[in-house]
Design a protein around this nucleic acid. Structure first.
Lengths: 301, 301
DNA sequence: CTTCATTCATAAGCCCAGCATATCAATACC
DNA sequence: GGTATTGATATGCTGGGCTTATGAATGAAG
């Protein structure tokens, strides 16, 4: 004999407590009256106390029954609320989404996409964390991040990536530099110039692609300085320490003393959306689905 | 197919969520593993979302599952607490007890009994309400009172009464009254004196017994004034408006200008405990049981 | 008072939800 | 590649919960 209380007992009890009438309560519950009496009796045995005072003409609640009616009502309501919330989380309409991004991605359409996501899913808490690409890869792998917007993040083992944007490179020059006079450069114009780049450890593929851009043009850049972020890097360029190559979107960041010039090259930098492979989060799925309609068509070949 | 969630589902779910292991959870629940898998699957179908991510090597919670684990834990704990509280109310250890009393009863041992009851059942809220006997009878009948301490409340239809105290009468006299010189009176000493009494509507039996006390002594008292309560009545006596008879306990109330004198009479006034007949309240039962040990032996013949 | 209606309890049997047993499939580990 | 582990699937059984039928008690009506 199962001694545990079940929600069924509470539902049945409340039906009787509401109507104070076994027969009507049974009809409402769509069961036969004896079945209802049986379950109420079981509940009373389980509690060790009577919940109703039966007269052959109707029933009424005992003090214990009155209290249980109060409590049972809130319990059932709470359970329903809980299930509804679990379903919302299941649908990805509620919860917490950890999103990492490389700093440069904030100069693309991502901020607008985030705004739309927040509007569509107001109950989702977005935790935005700026991280280097390689740090995001690690965080995605151990589950600290749900989603990452990586600068050149393709081809990482264990991550499912999708390329969102494909950008040209621009040359970053001191405004007094001789090459700044030209509107458009060839990459090999930069041959022999001192280069400032971010560290390879922050994003190997981004680094390699920048180098490859130069190598395509027939030279290997001489790197004289490393910088942790593009804004810092651009300030160093403005100070005349060297030149650089950066994804085109970064041209939106105006730094006094630094200018951007288009370069003719087939080399491209990408922004890639990454999530843990085989690890489905409805929240992340919803974010990705929204991005697909917003940014998907904005790839620049 | 029953589509309703039951506490069993939550219990099973939590077992798996705790151990993240179906087989071990099943052992802990003392059921077979397939039965557990079946119930979890049912719960997931009911929610429309997965709660666990199954790998052939262990399981882990989805975001929805994590949330449900939180909620289910509090739900089960709450239900247990609720049942415990209902049991306490069932045992009469908790709840609200409405106790009515005639004013004169507060001059007996009742206050001491109330103090003991409060100490023994600290979670019981005692609502004490001073009411005339007849008002108590009405309130008891319609359930507004759980228990009543009635002055001469025997023999009321629909109420179960038990006599707690049986008291002599005392004469109440102005201190300058000639009879005040005697230590003890005969009732018929009061023959011809103007009487002050409470209204018969407040307590018919108390009234009748007072009158009967006089009639036993061979006269019918001439009532010149009615008073709603004993303290008021005694003040009127002190003012020289008349004399009165009162239950002996009221002698504890000292009113300047009024004195009490024993009377030789077999007439008695009673304090009766009353509750609705056939209406068992564990709270009231506990109160009565406590009184039985405290006051039961204090009857004055 | 008798009769009828109402209402909850009891009795008896049925049926399916939940369970157990047996087995399979997939993966980690040596 | 073999073995162990773990959850899923298949199949049949069993008891708890249900239904139907009936009883008992009480109030209402005439």
């Amino acid at each position: 004999m199962n001694e545990e209380i079940e929600l069924r007992h509470l539902r049945y009890f409340l039906a009787v407590a509401d109507s104070l009438h076994f027969t009507r309560a049974a009809q409402q519950l769509k069961i036969a009256q004896p079945a209802l009496s049986q379950q109420i009796r079981r509940l009373e045995e389980l509690l060790g106390h009577a919940l109703f005072l039966r007269t052959t003409r109707g029933v009424q609640l005992t003090p214990a029954g009155s209290l249980l009616a109060l409590r049972a009502r809130t319990t059932l309501a709470r359970v329903e609320d809980d299930l509804a919330q679990v379903r919302r989380v299941g649908r990805g309409e509620e919860g917490t989404l950890s999103v990492g991004f490389s700093g440069s991605v904030m100069f693309t359409e991502l901020p607008a996409a985030i705004r739309r996501f927040r509007k569509r899913y107001p109950k989702v808490e977005l935790q935005l964390r700026e991280m280097w690409t390689s740090a995001q890869v690690e965080a995605l792998r151990d589950g600290a991040l749900d989603l990452g917007f990586l600068r050149d993040g393709e081809g990482n083992e264990g991550l499912a990536t999708r390329t969102l944007l494909r950008e040209r490179f621009v040359a970053v020059l001191p405004e007094r530099h001789a090459l700044a006079a030209k509107r458009t450069l060839r990459v090999n114009d930069l041959d022999g110039e001192p280069f400032i780049l971010f560290s390879r450890a922050m994003g190997p593929l981004a680094y390699d692609r920048t180098i490859a851009c130069c190598e395509q043009a027939g030279f290997v850049p001489e790197i004289v300085q490393y910088a942790p972020q593009f804004p810092t890097l651009f300030r160093l360029v403005a100070a005349g320490i060297g030149v650089s190559l950066a994804p085109a979107c970064m041209a939106r960041l105006s730094v006094p003393g630094a200018v951007y010039r288009e370069v003719r090259s087939t080399a491209r930098s990408t922004v890639d959306l990454a999530m843990r492979a085989g690890f489905e989060s409805p929240l992340a799925d919803n974010f990705v689905a929204l991005l697909r309609t917003q940014i998907g068509s904005e790839e620049r070949p």
